[in-house]
Amino acid sequence: MVVSRGLRDAGMEVIFGGFQNVEQIVESAISEDVDVIGLSMHSGAHLAYTERVINLLKEKGVKDHFLILVGGVIPVKDFLVLKEMGVANVYGPGTVVRDIVKFIVENIKK
């Protein structure tokens, strides 16, 4: 939620998904036609969830339409695994919200 607020304060329009299942996340991203999908996960299930989201996006043929970011309590050992799945960047504990904003601004218009 800090992240949502931080991005909003940086002038972005943030759609808060709450606690959604994979289908709902993908459906929201498509309908709202967002630039960035941000997944925040603290439950230790980040690998499984991210994989499911990305697979569903691929299935719908829209994976490359979005910039996908993952944050939360993610062990650094999993950063690479997530990036290989197709996540643009991963943010662990202690992240400064400014850095997220910077990354989004730099990567979104590509």
Binding site: N21, H42, S43, G44, A45, A48, Y49, R52
Partner: peptide
Amino acid sequence: DGDAEVGTS
């Protein structure tokens, strides 16, 4: 809806 989180936390 929840099967990915069985026992993870």
